[in-house]
């Protein structure tokens, strides 16, 4: 198949890569506004590192979402696993080599429980994860007594702080997780089936796909990834902080939703998610450097989320269906049209 002019025009169109255009605008605006702060290499390196955990959390939310399960517990999952990690290290003195796998296994189990609530008890994913979120927050408070867990093994700090080729470990981890997720979602039958389940579970079932098994697998994988982000968070802070984890929810979901409007015409995808996540982070960073108060973060993510969903609805009215549209539609009760 040859590449036509129309293909190139589409590839470069605002609708296809709006995040990159937004990035360009943000870059120009902040470069002109606060060049002395914004154009520092240190700023960019710290941004890359700081947001890597958000990226892992976003991918943890993305994988079940491709199979149709919107995970509102992603922030609580990261937070719970971060506290658990600090607890195992600080209170039980578990060796690092044991602690890390243990936290990831627990993360996977949290995903498994969520999946069983969804597939066996037939609770809508949005409600199931909302409930799980509250339960995990309670668990966090219980384990940590709602206080920071301090006095961790200083060696643990090295994991998140170590660098290879000038890049910190969390960024490498994000890169590895992104490549594996991209490979599975885009290049394997498993990924194809996950998308089919998310798009049309009934049709997928008739195509011989084990819908519930796939949803279960995606939630377990997402839970394990959230745990990885949580463990790295504790390593970075060198403490267990019960207030940090839940704040991952909005940036992660915003990145996934905005990402679905990029590159793939309405399909949740890995590259779109990572690009959207960093573009949003650049916006936040610029505003912070320009001296705006902290609440601007929430405002920015909230507006971006609404914009991302609105963008996809606009896509839909122009006869392109979208992943977000389906999630939104799923929340509305569809009126039955009488058969004729």
């Amino acid at each position: 198949m040859s590449i036509t002019r129309a293909d190139v025009a589409h590839a470069l169109s605002f609708r296809n890569i709006s995040a990159l255009y937004i990035f360009a605008i943000l870059f120009i605006v902040f470069s002109l506004w606060i060049p002395e702060k914004f154009l520092q290499p240190g700023v960019w390196r710290s941004l890359l590192d700081a947001e890597a955990l958000t990226g892992i959390a976003a991918l943890a939310a993305l994988i079940p979402l491709t199979a149709g399960a919107l995970n509102l517990a992603i922030g609580a999952q990261v937070g719970f696993c971060a506290i658990l990690s600090a607890f195992l290290l600080g209170k039980i003195q578990m060796p690092i080599a044991l602690q890390l796998p243990a936290v990831i296994v627990v993360g996977g189990l949290i995903g498994l429980v969520t999946a069983l609530v969804i597939t066996r008890l037939k609770v809508e994913p949005i409600i199931a994860t909302l409930g799980m979120s509250s339960i995990l927050l309670a668990g966090m408070a219980w384990i940590s007594n709602s206080q920071q867990i301090l006095g961790l093994d200083p060696a643990y700090r090295e994991i998140a702080a170590a660098q290879f080729a000038g890049i910190t470990v969390p960024v490498w981890v994000l890169l590895a997780v992104a490549i594996v997720s991209w490979y599975v979602l885009e290049r394997t039958p498993a990924g194809r089936r996950l998308y089919a389940v998310g798009f049309n579970p009934e049709s997928a079932r008739l195509a011989g796909i084990g819908v519930e098994r796939l949803q279960l697998g995606s939630l377990v994988a997402g839970g394990a990834l959230a745990a990885l982000a949580g463990a790295l968070l504790t390593s970075r802070l060198n403490a267990g902080d019960p207030t940090v984890g839940p704040s991952f929810l909005l940036p992660a979901l915003t990145a996934v939703f905005l990402g679905s409007t990029q590159f793939k015409g309405g399909r949740f995808n890995v590259l779109g998610t990572i690009v959207a996540m960093y573009v949003l982070a650049v916006g936040i960073k610029g505003l912070q450097l320009a001296g705006s108060p902290r609440w601007v973060n929430d405002l920015f993510y909230g507006l971006s989320l609404l914009l991302a969903v609105a963008l996809s609805q606009w896509d839909k009215t122009s006869r392109r269906s979208s992943a977000i549209g389906r999630v939104v539609d799923g929340l509305k009760r569809k009126p039955k049209t009488p058969a004729s």
Partner: peptide, 13 residues
């Protein structure tokens, strides 16, 4: 539309 095809996927998929 509801059962035989996945509308959001390509013909090949």
């Amino acid at each position: 539309g509801r059962l035989a095809v996945v509308r959001d996927m390509t013909a090949r998929e």
